[in-house]
């Protein structure tokens, strides 16, 4: 018995099926939302208006404004329902309490001498911070989609230019997050952790 335990390789990380599904659907939905969103952006650039800089065709989806809008307002359902389903799952299974950043992680970041523990805390902190950014993309998007019926939501963002800027900024934020999140996952659990989240 003891011999076989000693020979065993480190346990491969395994992830809940819903966590894997969320990651797959979220990545695909976000890429489609970004490509169709940039198509809409080009109709009247957030920065500079009609004289502003356009994104190149290679990163766009829809072919023209009408097509970009068709994609954007179709995939918005997949993106937000996926996030909602995952949110319900996280709360029902109380994953929120033991899989996301806690005060213990903040303490470890400040005081721990253990490099591994600190990296782990950093990793959890980063992927917890993305949740409000994903929600902000929905809130600012809804405020622009229904500014009359949801006038209170649009008013929260101040003026229209601020609202557009906030919605647009979720794109670079999500891209930067994805990079840092992947690098930290590699640092904490090497490639096998990253692979475990998808396969």
């Amino acid at each position: 018995m003891t011999a076989s335990v000693a020979k065993r390789k480190p346990k491969l990380p395994s992830q809940a099926l819903l966590a894997k599904t969320f990651h797959w659907v979220n990545i695909i939905a976000l890429l489609l939302m970004m490509a169709s969103g940039l198509q809409i952006y080009n109709a009247n650039p957030v920065f500079g208006g009609r004289a502003g800089w356009d994104f190149p065709d290679a990163v766009l989806l829809g072919g023209w404004l009408g097509g970009g809008r068709a994609w954007h307002f179709a995939i918005m359902w997949i993106y937000s329902l996926n996030l909602l389903a995952y949110g319900v799952y996280v709360f029902v299974t109380r994953r929120w309490q033991h899989r996301f950043a806690s005060s213990g992680d903040l303490k470890a970041l400040r005081a721990s001498q253990n490099e591994k523990r600190k990296n782990f805390a950093k990793h959890r902190l980063i992927y917890t911070i993305i949740v409000p950014v994903l929600l902000l993309a929905i809130a600012s998007g809804l405020a622009m989609y229904k500014p009359a019926q949801l006038h209170w939501l649009a008013a929260l963002f101040g003026d229209w230019q601020t609202l557009r800027t906030v919605h647009f900024m979720t794109v670079p934020l999500v891209l930067a997050f994805s990079l840092v999140h992947s690098l930290l996952a590699l640092k904490v659990g090497q490639l096998r952790l990253v692979k475990s989240m998808f396969f």
Binding site: G62, G67, A70, W71, I75
Partner: peptide, 11 residues
């Protein structure tokens, strides 16, 4: 433009 593929379907 290849990227307009699927527009009619999703709509």
């Amino acid at each position: 433009c290849g990227t307009s593929l699927g527009v009619r379907q999703v709509r």
